[in-house]
């Protein structure tokens, strides 16, 4: 299968702090890839480099064969990004916000696309209400609409269900699952059952290094060999992050 995202020995330093160390990783087209790791492992840094918000200190990241640093604008058009916190312009309404981003992405027939997306995330009734009055779940839905606005080939989702009520979290998971095979998804999460349920493959990041990579079942099978009984992906995570 065609490689859509490729990290080649990517290191990112913030002055004396190394956030990512020689990360090498490929994500295939149409795959849902899970990026898991404890807080401060470097997941968000890797995602920000991929989205063009940060520049790597060394190494190279390519998206659909294009260098993220050199062809930043073209790469950004291929990516839809859902940040960890759904921070939106509060004075705007969802429709105004989506119109603004549609003009930045150059979306054709923006009003029709916005109506479609608002219906998709179940926010058409709130389309003209100020975002400042919304709950976190509603903001997350608007953020998802924003990420999908230009119909990107790649979706990068940073902790999409964090802090949401179980019902909204479930709806969003179903939403992500619906992309399987249609879009390449890079999912960053702390929640192991979510990664287990949604991801084709999982990479575990620890202190900026990739310590494990494979399909959830494959990773769990390795633990069985080590003597675990019916291990879960959480056991795999703890095995690598705690060292046993």
């Amino acid at each position: 299968m065609r490689v859509m995202i490729h990290f080649e020995r990517v290191t990112k330093k913030f002055h004396d702090i190394t956030a990512l160390q020689e990360l090498t990783l490929s994500v295939r087209k149409g795959e849902i890839f899970g990026f898991v790791g404890p807080n401060g492992a470097g997941k968000t840094t890797a995602i920000r480099i991929l989205c063009g918000a940060l520049k790597p200190t060394s190494g190279k990241v390519t998206v659909a064969g294009m260098d993220v640093t050199e062809r930043s604008t073209e790469v950004k058009r291929l990516i839809g990004y859902l940040p960890e916190e759904p921070n939106l312009y509060e004075r705007m309404t969802p429709r105004q916000l989506l119109r603004f981003f549609a003009s930045l992405y150059g979306v054709a027939d923006a009003d029709t696309r916005i109506d479609e997306l608002l219906a998709l995330v179940g926010m058409q009734e709130k389309a003209d209400v100020r975002i400042a009055t919304f709950s976190k779940g509603m903001r997350q839905r608007i953020s998802i609409a924003r990420a999908l606005l230009h119909d990107p080939e790649i979706l990068i989702l940073d902790e999409p269900t964090m802090g949401l009520d179980p019902l909204t979290a479930r709806e969003i998971r179903e939403f992500i699952a619906s992309f399987n095979g249609k879009k390449t998804v890079l999912l960053c999460t702390h929640y192991m059952p979510e990664a287990d349920l949604l991801c084709d493959r999982v990479g575990i990041l620890l202190s900026g290094k990739l310590v494990a990579l494979g399909e959830p079942e494959q990773l769990k099978a390795e633990l069985v060999k080590e003597g675990y009984e019916s291990p879960t992906l959480e056991d795999v995570f703890l095995r690598y992050t705690r060292g046993g």
Binding site: R48, C51, G52, A53, S72, T73, E74, K76, R77, I79, Y81, P83, E85, N87, L88, Y89, E90, F101, L104, Y105, G106, R146
Partner: peptide, 14 residues
């Protein structure tokens, strides 16, 4: 401060 900058930085605009 509001972290809305992140959405702008990932949009196709320099």
């Amino acid at each position: 401060d509001r972290k809305t900058i992140e959405s702008l930085l990932t949009a196709p605009i320099s």
